[in-house]
Write a protein that binds this DNA or RNA. Structure first.
Lengths: 126, 126
DNA sequence: GAGGGCACTTACCGCAAGGTACGTACCCCA
DNA sequence: TGGGGTACGTACCTTGCGGTAAGTGCCCTC
């Protein structure tokens, strides 16, 4: 497996948090699970346009190892796997909220033409 | 210069914020400037053990382009350059605070042996 | 019986982030 | 006269993140 041996000694909490959130799709996965509560693999893939199956499984496994999501396998045919946030995952999402607001502010002052088309101010986070 | 052309169209505020914070030393630089108010290049380098001069200048230039820090050059000999946070930088630091607390919590539950030696609970962030 | 969905796994590849090393121009101190 | 400090710039190299493509086993539908 890939699963790089991260989790080095962190110098501060920001380090420890960014280590968990870094990764191209981690933030979107968190948001998708927060918004829908429970999602299957194919649903997540459809919800994250552009993600490859490899990266999605890889990120999900890392987040499972980091205790952000729980992975429930149902012994059915065709296979069914469901992903949900843990308490830690929901807490992380809550901690990311102010950062998301700051980012929206940044988008608004740097690329105002991208904001109005989908009334981003009304959307909570993404 | 390196200065990769980032700032692509972001799908959510988290994207826009993480794009600015990602980079191995960005968080530490923010914290160092928040803690000391104003810092010279060599002071920052001493405050971030292990950083190379190349990465420090590169990150500082990117953060200057992102309007997180201001760079003040004094025409003296030997040269003197001072870095300070802008309002946006201080706002970003404030937005990072909950994330840092979450990360401290994660460290505390995964590597409790690393916490007590420097009474990290007393330190606000790093 | 061909095609498509599900939930992956494996192999391979490219590129950018980050590290190392050295050079610059000037100064101060021993 | 040599060593060290200040604030970088540049060239080269390695690592690994992320992307692409193909294969797997089973099932359902057309």
């Amino acid at each position: 497996m890939v699963t790089s041996a991260r989790r080095g000694p962190y110098v501060c909490g920001i380090d420890a948090a960014l280590d968990v959130v870094s990764g191209k799709w981690k933030g979107l996965i968190l948001w998708e699970l927060e918004a829908h509560g429970v999602r299957r693999f194919a649903e997540l893939r459809r919800g994250l346009p552009g993600v490859s199956e490899k990266m999605l499984t890889q990120h999900l496994r890392e987040m499972e190892a980091d205790q952000l999501v729980v992975r429930t396998v149902y012994a059915e045919v065709p296979p069914r796997v469901e992903y949900t946030l843990t308490g830690h995952g929901r807490a992380l999402n809550a901690a990311l909220d102010p950062l998301g607001r700051w980012g929206m502010e940044r988008i608004r002052r740097e690329q105002p033409e991208l904001v109005d088309h989908a009334d981003a101010a009304a959307m909570p986070r993404p």
